[in-house]
Amino acid sequence: MARLAGCRWLKAFPAAALGPAWISGLKGPFPDVNFVATGGLKAADAPAYLAAGARVVALGAALADPGQRDEIGNLLAS
C-alpha cells in the first residue's frame, strides 16, 4: 500500500524482531523501496542489515550505551 501511494522510503520497525532476512526478502519484490532499519538494534547489528539491503540503520538506545561507543565510531569511520 505504501509503495502504491508513492512511498519509496519505509521504516522497518522493530528491526531487531524482523531480522536482516526480512529486509532481503522484501528487497526482491520491491527493489525500488529503501528500507530504514530501526528498533532494538545494537551497533554490531548494523553491518548485517546493510548487507541485507537496508539503506539506513538507525540506532537509538545504542547511542546512550557507553559499551557501544567504540563500535559506533568504527561504523562511522568505515
Rank of each mutant, 00 (worst) to 15 (best):
N34L: 07
L26V: 05
A43V: 12
L50P: 02
P66D: 08
A62K: 02
F35A: 03
G60M: 11
L76P: 04
G25K: 00
A43G: 12
P47T: 04
A61S: 15
V33W: 00
Q68Y: 05
A17I: 10
V33Y: 00
K11G: 10
A64P: 03
V56W: 09
A44I: 09
P14H: 05
A51P: 07
A43L: 08
G19V: 08
G67H: 11
F30I: 02
K42L: 12
W22I: 14
K42R: 15
S24I: 01
L59P: 05
S24W: 01
T38S: 14
P29W: 12
L63C: 13
A64S: 11
A64Y: 13
G67M: 07
Y49Q: 03
A61K: 15
L63M: 14
A15W: 03
K27C: 13
A64L: 13
L63S: 06
P14W: 05
F30E: 01
A15E: 01
D45M: 06
K27D: 06
A43D: 10
V36N: 00
F13E: 12
G73Q: 08
F30H: 10
F30P: 00
A51W: 11
A44H: 03
Q68R: 02
A51C: 10
D45C: 06
A61V: 09
I23T: 04
V56I: 15
L59E: 04
A46N: 05
L50Q: 06
K11I: 14
F35T: 04
P47Y: 08
I72K: 13
G25W: 00
K27E: 07
I23H: 03
L75P: 04
E71N: 10
G19Y: 02
A46L: 09
G19D: 06
F13Q: 05
G25P: 02
A58P: 01
L50I: 15
G19C: 09
R8K: 12
D45L: 07
P66M: 06
P66I: 09
A21P: 01
A54L: 10
Y49P: 02
P20K: 11
A21M: 10
P66V: 08
L63H: 04
N34F: 07
L10N: 02
A37K: 01
G25D: 00
A52P: 07
F35N: 03
P47E: 07
G53N: 11
